[in-house]
Write a protein that binds this DNA or RNA. Structure first.
Lengths: 199, 199
DNA sequence: TTTTATTTTGATTGATTGATCAGTTTTTAT
DNA sequence: ATAAAAACTGATCAATCAATCAAAATAAAA
């Protein structure tokens, strides 16, 4: 029963990670301490150190958890579509929608990516193979295959991918108190403008 | 002689701000301490507290210094152009070029904007009237006036402005070890794609 | 049941931080 | 020249932090 043996540990780990996400969202990385996470998770700092090898390890696991969540959400929508145009529109739509509905997740992810650094002092957001990078690969793949299938015309796929990523990122700066209509409106208009670039 | 009276103070303030920019670039916000800034500026922590009311005040002044620098650099190029197409292309070109040549400035600016919060715990990058916002206003103004003069066709100026801003921001993720050619290439291609959206 | 392994607590430690302040030097004004 | 104001130093302080650890509680295995 090797599985059951670690069930408690895994559940506790996820509980701590979820608490970390809340604290990161509420206080920002600089004001996120293990004791704040511990009290949010209704446990002790010692337990965090027991399940994770340190604060950095906790942040790495939290980042992985968040990136995986986002990636799964977007991939699912993309795979439902048959055409590359459909896949691309789904990528944009879900990328923006995710930032509207799962705002706290993206907020926490940004706090980590902009503050944690490798042992060589390189910020995560400069690291080539960070977890977010997988979504880039997916996006560029859609663009290139769409060109090969003649659905899209000729353009630099890397540059257009960056423009799309930038537009999705900036949806975070949309006013959040309003309802979803603003996000949907932004999403529709971004899609229209992207089509102008690639068709 | 009211002017001379404050010359030393102003010079010292700028010296400390420049040291802060270097430390922010090298260590990131979380590892930026007053003592690190003091030793980089070859002075003492006490002096920083003498010239600034605290760490937050220093960061605010540094942010202002950086935003002013960038704004002046872009505005200068934009104002040289006569047509709105010219102004828009200049905005994009200088926005991207600035991120290539003054990388340390933008790096420090991002460290501040993503970490400092208002007394109400609102992150700076969520504050409506942050210093960066002035560039937005300029960009939207170019787009709207370009439409009014029939240089541009019909589109949502706020959305297109966001797409452009996103593309400029992401130029920071271009590999930096290479020479400027990558930035220029990216710049040219972004401009072409933007023209597809607005013409 | 007894033994062993896993999980949890909370107090403690050593290090670092931003800020303060008494005292010194330098500049400016009279 | 003298007084006053401004600029500056460096030691010190209280607060906070991540990490540690001995001891206790709980669960699993024998």
């Amino acid at each position: 029963m090797k599985n059951k043996q670690y069930l408690i540990a895994d559940a506790r780990k996820e509980q701590i990670i979820k608490a970390a996400i809340e604290v990161l969202r509420d206080y920002g990385y600089i004001n996120t301490s293990l004791s704040k996470i511990a009290s949010k998770a209704k446990t002790s700092t010692g337990l965090i150190s027991y399940h994770f090898s340190g604060k950095e390890d906790l942040m790495n696991n939290t980042l992985l958890y968040l990136a995986e969540h986002e990636k799964a959400s977007i991939k699912e929508k993309v795979e439902k579509e048959q055409t590359y145009t459909g896949k691309l529109m789904a990528f944009i739509e879900e990328g923006i929608a995710y930032r509207g509905t799962k705002r706290e997740n993206i907020t926490a992810l940004l706090e980590i990516v902009f503050n944690v650094r490798t042992p060589n002092n390189v910020p995560y957001f400069r690291v080539e193979m960070n977890p977010e990078e997988e979504l880039n690969v997916l996006l560029e793949e859609i663009l290139i295959k769409g060109q090969q299938s003649k659905e899209f015309n000729d353009f630099d796929s890397k540059v257009v991918a960056m423009i799309i990523r930038g537009a999705i990122s900036l949806s975070m700066s949309l006013p959040q108190n309003e309802n979803d209509v603003r996000f949907e409106d932004y999403s529709e208009k971004v899609k229209k403008n992207v089509l102008k670039m690639i068709k």
